[in-house]
Nucleic acid binder design. Structure first.
Length: 826
RNA sequence: GCCGGAGUGGCGGAAUAGGCAGACGCACAGGACUUAAAAUCCUGCGGUCCUUACAGACCGUACCGGUUCGACCCCGGUCUCCGGCACCA
């Protein structure tokens, strides 16, 4: 070991050692309790950024700690390697997506290794590898067989730049999540997964996920958007059909003054055909169809619509009301038609004001300040029913139930549940994704490829133009095949799968990554998942809805098929905050990007890991600070010097010691309380910043102690040894080096986490805070576990306290053992 | 609009079950070592007031109020910021 800390030499040396000695290989072992720690696998964009460093550092501390703490730890890594950037590179630079991707993977794998992360690289998976996507296709076919995958023509979100459809979840503020282009609509026949079948389970299970941040659970709840209500059939004047609507406000049925249908509602055309209203209706429909979601929602306040010349009949009172079409009613939610109650719904109120329609109040707020017959806005709160026949006088909340029961009894409606969540549209008109293993036969319709023929390989004779349909259509060899059912010539599906499917089960594949017979062996998965799934999942909060809901859906579906051992994939979830610089997100355009490469080069991986964990709690945003990094490097150098100096002076670590002096006891106390704190902070509440600060305090204490004349070498040696161990999950390279230097053999990766000595934590004297009327007045050292009587006696003898109590009456004395004494006076 | 968070020194943050507010680090200031610099080590570092000094007093966790012997922490209200959903009937 050099006198000075040389991070480059040390890190290269120990990375080589770990690799050559397979230090991180994991096998199933029933004799040990398992611990599965997983970080969200990266898209291989080419280079790591600080967000990756943060994500993987957190995971690595946990993995290394749990391993030392006696668990059989699974800590894998892989690549979410299908996706658009690879294809864009092909279009732009003429590199094949496969080549581009595999080169990026190789580069990023090296960078991960340079961070000293304890992955079992034998379990590496890449979703673009045929060994992986073969099983992706197999799973898709099982979904299809169970009715969870279906094809349907629908207006879909279409990104004009990416030239592909997007799932609802991938449209953010009306724009493509990836390229930010304004998303339009297109009618296409596409594959869907029936995630709505799982809406209730996805929602209700959230309450069982105690180890998830509330924030993420709320986001998923909002996204699923369950609302209880009823469907009600209205009559249509001069028509045999019924107009079915969905409402959550059955209680307001008597206040309906008009109806609104979505412009896309299937009845609209037949209702206006051949009438004087037809032209205006057609014109409005066309206008709406051309609108993007942004346009459709930006007109939130100004209501537009067209009267279609027809009337609906209220099933409760027989009242005839006009029917409109308007873009504020969406075909994709409920039944695509609503009853309008302007007195008690703000949107209906705005529409009614615009079109001069009748407003009938049916819920009385019983508030003299509100004039029910001249409302300024809709009244939406609780009240008493009026103008509602037999329901008058009832509380309207109770009436919701009563009216629904009445409708059911009369056969004009029923209670239903609606979800904001839609089925998952998974077809993508792209090349670099898993081919959908379906075949279209004129005779048999859509048929899945035979399982023995999987994988359906991506063809290589493909042109990348970036335009039009799926690039797979340009392949001469891909499309033509035979029907797996009847053997006649047939055509393959040309679209590929949304890459979010690939990342919805990779965590299961890690349990058995090389299996050629199945996606994974259920027994191996059961070992690593147990009853509750991945013990700790770590990743960015940006995946709160998309990835984390899709993965839960897959896990549930695979559980239902008997393949997975538990219903929920991730027992505990940590969403780490972003890494910013100068208060802003790091971005190339602002020019505030700090690259992990330059930090590793200048300070080393240990410093980078230490800083990123020390600077902020993991779930919070972290502002990158160059001087803060220097501080972390300074700390490591300080530890290094301490160890170097110790060995220079005393040789290797003595085995025994006895704490005699007060200084000995004090150091021994700090040492053991630090071990206790770090164990709790790392193993329990993931408070890495406070764990590190307590290690810093220990080091400060050791610096003071080593200058003493009557120091105890055995004690200092023990502190040196245990300091190295507890620091090692954070900064493994430097610790291995120091470990070797103090004469220890073997790698720290096989060391047991130290236990603290309870006896050392018992102090002879403790500091007591003395308060008068709750205000701090003095502090004093008293014997440990002194009784309240003794304490009171000592405190009352104190001159300062006596002066404060002069002329006052002591009302009572409150004492907290070993902590405080509060004297209440008048 | 609905739902969820957060607000503590110059800065990042700490206070884990209601009991010393500001641990640890950064920045800054002063000192030691050095021909000098770097590195290192030591000291100080919320505000106001008071004191020659030692020391001491008061205020202070966004704001207002409440509960309590005691509140950064619990309760009610207000403000600001961040995040999610949003013409979802």
């Amino acid at each position: 070991m050099n006198e000075r800390y040389n991070h480059k030499e040390i890190e290269a040396k120990w990375q080589k050692y770990w690799e050559e000695n397979n230090c991180f290989e994991t096998v199933e072992d029933d004799s040990k309790e398992k611990y599965y720690v997983l970080e969200m696998f990266p898209y291989p964009s080419g280079k790591l950024h600080m967000g990756h460093v943060r994500n993987y550092s957190i995971g690595d501390i946990v993995a290394r700690f749990k391993k030392m703490d006696g668990y059989n730890v699974l800590h894998p890594m892989g690549w979410d390697s299908f996706g658009l950037p690879a294809e864009n590179a092909a279009i732009k630079h003429g590199i094949h997506p496969a080549k581009w991707t595999w080169e990026n993977i190789a580069e990023m794998r090296e960078q991960l290794k340079e961070l000293g992360l304890s992955y079992d690289w034998n379990r590496e998976v890449a979703t673009c590898h045929e060994d992986y996507y073969k099983w992706m296709q197999w799973i898709f076919i099982q979904f299809y067989k169970r009715g969870l995958a279906y094809k349907k023509e629908n207006p879909v979100n279409w990104c004009p730049d990416c030239q592909t459809v997007l799932a609802n979840e991938q449209v953010v503020d009306g724009c493509c999540e990836r390229c930010k282009a304004v998303v339009g609509k297109k009618n296409l026949s596409q594959w869907y997964l029936k995630i709505t079948d799982y809406a209730d389970r996805l929602l209700d299970n959230l309450d069982t996920l105690e180890g998830w941040p509330n924030k993420v659970k709320m986001m998923q709840k909002n996204w699923i958007g369950r609302s209880y209500g009823a469907e009600v059939d209205f009559g249509i004047k001069d028509d045999d059909r019924k107009l079915r609507i969905f409402t959550t406000r059955c209680d307001t049925l008597f206040g309906v003054t008009y109806m609104v249908m979505s412009p896309e509602h299937p009845y609209v055309n037949s209702l206006v055909e051949g009438t004087e209203y037809e032209a205006a209706v057609k014109e409005y429909q066309e206008k709406v169809q051309k609108m993007t979601d942004i346009e459709r929602t930006s007109t939130a306040n100004e209501k537009t619509g067209v009267f279609i010349g027809r009337y609906a009949v209220n099933p409760l009172n027989g009242k005839e009301v006009p029917i409109f079409i308007s873009d504020y009613v969406l075909m994709g939610y409920g039944t695509g038609a609503i009853m309008a109650v302007p007195a008690h719904d703000q949107r209906d109120f705005d529409f009614a004001k615009t079109f001069g329609l009748e407003i009938i109040p049916v819920v009385d707020p019983q508030n003299p300040e509100i004039d029910l017959y001249d409302l300024k806005e809709a009244f939406v709160a609780e009240g008493t029913m009026i103008n509602s026949g037999e329901f008058n006088g009832m509380n309207n909340r109770d009436a919701i139930e009563k009216v629904a029961d009445y409708l059911k009894e009369k056969g004009i409606g029923e209670k239903t549940v609606n979800y904001r969540l839609r089925d998952w549209l998974i077809s993508r008109q792209r090349y670099w994704g898993t081919p959908i293993p379906m075949i279209y036969c004129e005779e048999c319709g859509w048929v899945p490829e035979k399982e023995e023929n999987l994988p359906v390989l991506l063809p290589t004779d493909v042109e990348f133009t970036g335009k039009g349909e799926s690039p797979l259509t340009t392949s001469a060899t891909f499309g033509d095949t035979v029907c797996p059912c009847c053997g006649k010539p047939a055509r393959r599906e040309m679209d590929t799968m949304d890459t979010f499917l690939d990342s919805s089960w990779y965590f299961l594949r890690y349990a058995d990554p090389k299996n050629a017979e199945a996606p994974f062996d259920p027994a191996k998965a059961a070992y690593w998942f147990g009853k509750n799934g991945v013990d700790q999942y770590i990743g960015g909060v940006e995946h709160a809805i998309l990835h984390l809901m899709y993965a839960r859906f897959f896990q549930m579906a695979l559980y239902d098929m008997g393949l997975a051992s538990c219903e929920e994939p991730f027992e505990n979830l940590l969403t780490q905050g972003m890494v910013n610089k100068d208060g802003k997100k790091m971005s190339k355009s602002i020019g505030n990007v700090v690259s992990p490469e330059e930090i590793i080069e200048k300070y080393g991986a240990d410093t980078a890991r230490l800083f990123i964990l020390f600077a902020a709690p993991p779930e919070r945003e972290l502002d990158w600070s160059d001087t803060g990094v220097e501080g972390s490097y300074r700390f490591l150098s300080r530890v290094y010097r301490l160890v170097y100096e110790f060995v220079e002076k005393y040789g290797s670590v003595p085995e025994t010691f006895e704490a005699k002096t007060a200084a000995d006891k004090s150091l021994n106390y700090v040492l053991n309380s630090t071990i206790k704190k770090v164990s709790e902070d790392v193993g329990g509440r993931f408070s890495f910043n406070t764990a590190i600060s307590s290690i810093m305090e220990l080091v400060n204490e050791m610096y003071r102690y080593k200058e003493l004349e009557d120091l105890n070498v055995g004690l200092l040696g023990k502190a040196v040894k245990e300091l190295i161990i507890i620091l090692s999950p954070f900064t493994p390279h430097i610790c291995e080096e120091m470990w070797e230097h103090i004469g220890q053999t073997g790698s720290l990766t096989t060391m047991a986490w130290p236990e603290f000595d309870e006896d050392a934590l018992v102090k002879d004297e403790v500091l007591i805070v003395v308060q008068v009327n709750g205000k701090l007045k003095d502090k004093m050292m008293v014997a440990n576990n002194a009784s309240q009587e003794d304490l009171e006696k000592i405190v009352m003898e104190n001159e300062k306290i006596q002066a404060l109590l002069e002329g006052k009456t002591v009302v009572k004395v409150i004492s907290v053992p070993n902590r405080l004494l509060n004297i209440v006076v008048k």
